[in-house]
Design a protein around this nucleic acid. Structure first.
Lengths: 361, 361
DNA sequence: ATTAGCACTCTCTCCGGTAGACTGCTAATC
DNA sequence: GATTAGCAGTCTACCGGAGAGAGTGCTAAT
């Protein structure tokens, strides 16, 4: 395995002739359906006007030369490369109609009023997995990047809790040791005063304000209390990992016949578990303006995903775009039914956007 | 596969003779090590005073008759049944010393002060997976069973958020529509007044109090607001699923050589994903007084786990026992290294208990 | 009760042979 | 020049048989 990066192949992908494009598309479609290498014979009808298998063979040889196809072995049919899939996906019609039963499943799911955002997202991954028979992933916007709407201290008896409420509605919490001699009520008052002063600021600003105030405070209780709060905010700020990917339907990966080798399977599970690369892709999809982002095989930065494809779509973006609330997607083998997977992801993302908007605004 | 339940086998497990027990233990240990069916020849040394292979064969035949062993085929060595593993596990010494490097890894992990409870638990599953090379699971006590320490309404601009803080420090939230004409400040006041009144009650009590007060309220704002709150609490109370299992190291399952068949693998992943049975076992372990609970093969209620073993240990219980803060555990093939897996789970649970205590009290 | 010995059974692996599926190439054709 | 028929060549997948190896159960002797 050489670490070659995508679409920068040696062959600069010259525009394909009409016929080559047709043949390539037909081959990819058939390979996706059957999983078997495709021979020239079965493509004679695909080239517009019917041609002989010998002609198809010439075209196939050319497409292989250009990097769109390979052969498992010398006397076998052709199989698409990642570049072949890429061409296929890029030439897919932008809008594919969803099957009626799928459409109904999606509408039905979002009709049931689920109240909690996280729970909706979790359910959405399950929905998406059922629809596509692939593993699905979801990421919601990082709370810590939003602005702080409230600080609250809650006395729990043996210790106290600092709550930080963000404008997204997310809540982070840290345990606090109340300083010796500070009454819980006083602690609560100090925290909420700070909270009112910083309402709408970023976490970093809140922290530095807390630090400033702690230094400036004349009252000793206030000083120690504020530095406690600052310490908690600091720990919040540089927590090991702020956000986590939600997974659904990961059992589908092992059921995937296209992941033939055990080792491939292992690598995919490991990549999913490592999270970093998946996170990266999901974040990119959230930032992009495109409705879906498809990452195929070696286009993945992580070697463990080189046999896999990820389809990701942002949700909850306003008309302004690019400020999505999060991203959902599916992960499956490069040999997947792109048309239906892409439309399922898009449709679910659309509905999810509507559902979140209804809940949130 | 017949749905036979464990240790209620036809053979009522009569006490094994000293020699049978020795042979069985040696066989299980060797099978765990090698993964190959064990022949009589390699057990001649195991029976206390050395005996011939023929004698061992007689004993093996008897053990098979009693249900502790089987043969993959007529002329192969013996392999333990679930009952065989059960006997082996039950006769394992209660305390096995952990390897020095493992011990250091555990201590090292908990030395790094992690601030958030969920994050610690998440990290703990990863630690446990690294130590045992199995998938690990964790469950923390259901917040909704605790008592409510605070109700808080936070105005987010476009809508409002109801926070419910429990004595465990867990926080649940629901979006609220502020009733027409109710000022955010007023809403906050109404909620916090309710919160003060019900401090320490269960969620159900809080809800019924909210409902009572809504009915009794004279002020219209207060009435509508309180019924909003009650609706939110209701949705909290019967949320689809209150608690979720945390998973770590699930890639280890596919790496497990003992899960030879793809289908077995799939079933295990599905069982993990379905969560219900895993939850059930983890809850049972949390309630039990035993330091670890081992569930082997067909002892599992879920058929998908019939080839797997789960080792679970509660953590965070006081000296009173039975009120654990949660449970951690590992899931692997029935053919696993029980001695080291059990001691790893116990050791991690112990340290985790200490860490949580330090954080919380 | 234990053991030596032996016949028997079952699996696993290797091997050669064959059928089948495609290809690439050449030479003829449009 | 593009297309096509025909054909030789290649590679895989599958099958059946042979033989080695491992381990058992049984019998008869100790």
């Amino acid at each position: 395995m050489e670490p070659s990066r995508p679409s920068q192949g040696v062959h600069a992908a010259p525009r394909l002739s009409e016929r080559k494009a047709r043949i390539l598309a037909a081959l990819v479609a058939q390979y996706i359906r059957s999983g078997e290498p495709v021979g020239s014979e079965s493509l004679t009808a695909a080239a517009g006007s019917p041609v002989s298998s010998a002609t198809v063979r010439n075209e196939l040889a050319a497409l292989e030369e250009m990097g769109y196809l390979t052969q498992p072995h010398a006397s076998a049919g052709r199989v698409p490369t990642d570049l072949g899939y890429r061409h296929y996906v890029d030439s897919l019609p932008t809008r594919v109609r969803l099957g009626e039963s799928d459409r109904r499943a999606i509408v039905g799911f979002f009709d049931e009023a689920l109240a909690d955002v996280d729970e909706i997202l979790r359910g959405t991954t399950q929905l998406l997995s059922r629809l596509t028979h692939h593993a699905s992933v979801a990421l919601s916007r990082n709370a810590r990047e939003g602005s702080v709407m409230r600080l609250e201290v809650v006395n729990l008896g043996s210790n106290a809790l600092l709550l930080v409420v963000f404008d997204s509605g997310q809540v982070e919490r840290r345990f606090l040791d109340l300083p010796e001699g500070v009454a819980p009520e006083e602690a609560e008052r100090i925290a909420s005063r700070l909270g009112e002063a910083v309402r709408g600021s970023t976490l970093a600003d809140v922290r530095s304000t807390a630090s400033d105030r702690a230094r400036a405070a004349e009252d000793e209780h206030e000083r120690t209390m504020l530095s406690e709060v600052e310490a908690a905010l600091a720990s919040l700020q540089d927590a090991v990992q702020a956000e986590h990917v939600l997974y659904g339907g990961v059992a589908n990966i092992v059921a995937e016949r296209a992941f033939e080798h055990r080792e491939t399977l292992r690598q995919v599970y490991e990549a999913l578990e490592r999270e970093t690369e998946i996170l990266e892709l999901l974040r990119q999809a959230a930032g992009a303006t495109a409705p879906v982002r498809v990452t195929i095989g070696r286009e993945h930065p992580a070697a463990g995903m080189w046999e896999a494809t990820m389809i990701a779509a942002p949700f909850g973006a306003g008309i302004t775009g690019s400020n999505a609330l999060g991203t959902i997607g599916v992960v499956g083998p490069t040999r997947m039914d792109y048309a239906s997977a892409i439309s399922a992801v898009r449709a679910v993302a659309d509905r999810l956007s509507a559902a979140v908007r209804a809940l949130d605004v």
